[in-house]
Amino acid sequence: MRGCLAIYRRELLILKKKFFRQLASMSVGPLLYLVAFGLGMGQGVQVQGRSYLEFLIPGLVAMSSMTQAFAIASEINIARFYWRIFEEFQAAPIRNIAYVTGEVLAGITRALLSVVVILLIGLLSGVSLSYNIFFWLAVVLNSFLFASLAVGLAMVVKSHADQALLTNFFITPMAFLGGTFFPVDRMPVWAQKILHFLPLTHAAKIIRSSAFGLTPDRFSYLLLAGLGTMLFVVAFLCVNKAKE
């Protein structure tokens, strides 16, 4: 437990040192999407009986919690390949599970921070939705899943460039196709079937349902929790891969 808290504490210190830079970087993307898609393109457009801006905000929450949780991989890579601090953790008497838990918690923290930024931007744009327990549970599960994926991948990649490649091939397409900017059910049936395999599709669906005050789909929660746990175990198993 102490080892996990030490890892988490270090990541928080790093986040604190770069807090305003991080905050600015977390705000730029959602702001652009809100202006371009919400205020520009989506003006007067109704989706699922709501204004497009109301539809967009939960989608951005899902996307941002994914990208910010996944961004912990970059921090790990910098520590591993650039500053070589990963050696310091490996020489310490802490278990692999403590290391993974500390980093995943740091990923979730970053994700939650980015979600708060989006909700504030949404409030300033006049969008007020229901941010209830189901909403936050979905956000945490989505962040947990992608932070676990990030830690696992960060352990097996051989360079920072490999990590960027994975982001370009998996995270960016998912960000656009996982029900963030448009309802998945508007896609052709064959595409819908494929998109239902993406965890972000489920995350966007339940985050949106909760935010709209509807009953979210339990299966999606279970799926995110199950897949997240599986990826957490994989990340734990991958730590030894990074050893040599």
């Binding site: 270090r10 210190l13 790093i14 040192k17 770069k18 500053w83 070589r84 601090i85 050696e87 310091e88």
Partner: peptide, 8 residues
């Protein structure tokens, strides 16, 4: 190699 946290 120096492996300190440079930001800290």
């Amino acid at each position: 190699t120096i492996n300190l946290d440079h930001e800290l």
